[in-house]
Design a protein around this nucleic acid. Sequence first.
DNA 1: AGCTGTCAACCAACCAGTTAGTTAGAGTGG
DNA 2: CCACTCTAACTAACTGGTTGGTTGACAGCT
Lengths: 174, 174
Amino acid sequence: MVRDKEATKRKLLDAATAEFATYGIAGARVDRIAKNAGANKALIYAYFCSKEHLFEMVVQEQVDLAIRTLTITPEDLPGYAGKLFDRYLEHPQLLRLMGWLRLENGFDAMPEAEIRAHADKVAAIREAQRAGAVPDHFDAEELLSLVVHLSILGFSSPTATRDLVVRAVGRIVG
Amino acid sequence: MVRDKEATKRKLLDAATAEFATYGIAGARVDRIAKNAGANKALIYAYFCSKEHLFEMVVQEQVDLAIRTLTITPEDLPGYAGKLFDRYLEHPQLLRLMGWLRLENGFDAMPEAEIRAHADKVAAIREAQRAGAVPDHFDAEELLSLVVHLSILGFSSPTATRDLVVRAVGRIVG
DNA sequence: AGCTGTCAACCAACCAGTTAGTTAGAGTGG
DNA sequence: CCACTCTAACTAACTGGTTGGTTGACAGCT
């Protein structure tokens, strides 16, 4: 047996991510997370305090990852939507986790980091509009909402393709 | 005391609708439904078999209602999106119930009635395209997906307005 | 020895579902 | 109009299994 606190925390976080993405907060089972992580249930409480707090850690990690990996390209919003679409296809966890979070904790329970990242993106778009690189028939805030929302088209219609999302954003921006 | 089976079923269904919309399937509590309906828990099992089956009844009723109330206007898709937006604002229950259903039962667990209604709408749009009333740079199926998805913009950005949705669909169609 | 990571076993609260029994009220016969 | 019965709506209390959370002991490392 190896005794590595950080490695155990990592395994627990990974198992928790999968569990919460699949079953939500209310449906997730702490015993199942421990079992799938190959660790003991008590460790969850030693390292993460409670089920709710573990969920928060999972969401925070996923959101941070998403923000760090994807930077907005205000002058190419269709391309940005395409990259978002790809990310959701590769990591469906994020979309599901945010879905559960919204439904369970209300619609304005957004993680702090996401609010800041959102504000930055709006600023970037507004700047691009001022520079004439992006048309201004939509307010920067509105534009970002539309682009992000269209990139999760797969959420309401599972047959939606990347190409469709890109073309749709193209018409919104163009 | 009045003894009216149908009235009691109605009260249970109403309480269940609110409960499931708020907490989801896993989070909903059968005792709470009974209490809020002013009825006994055992009646839920006498009238609706199980918690899961009660959820199905609730979803079916809400979907049927939505389908019966709102007919598509293929030649005015922005207006249709606006009406959908209004409906979701007035009855947030439907959107939340469908959200829980999607997350808990998988993305292709759509009620039978909704699948049929969807096919009818696609046919109506395709007909309008053939008649030249709707441009065909998007396939009818794609167009419907986009319109419906944009109408639930409020799901991902709570500050979204009706006007924004209508304008966005206008650009998609136009 | 002493500190730390780990775990089996445990607990109280909770929850979906059941049951044995109670009661409102419609029907019936006088 | 009354007394009686029968049925179906209704209920309080219970059950068996589950769940989030705890604890005291054990094992590995310095």
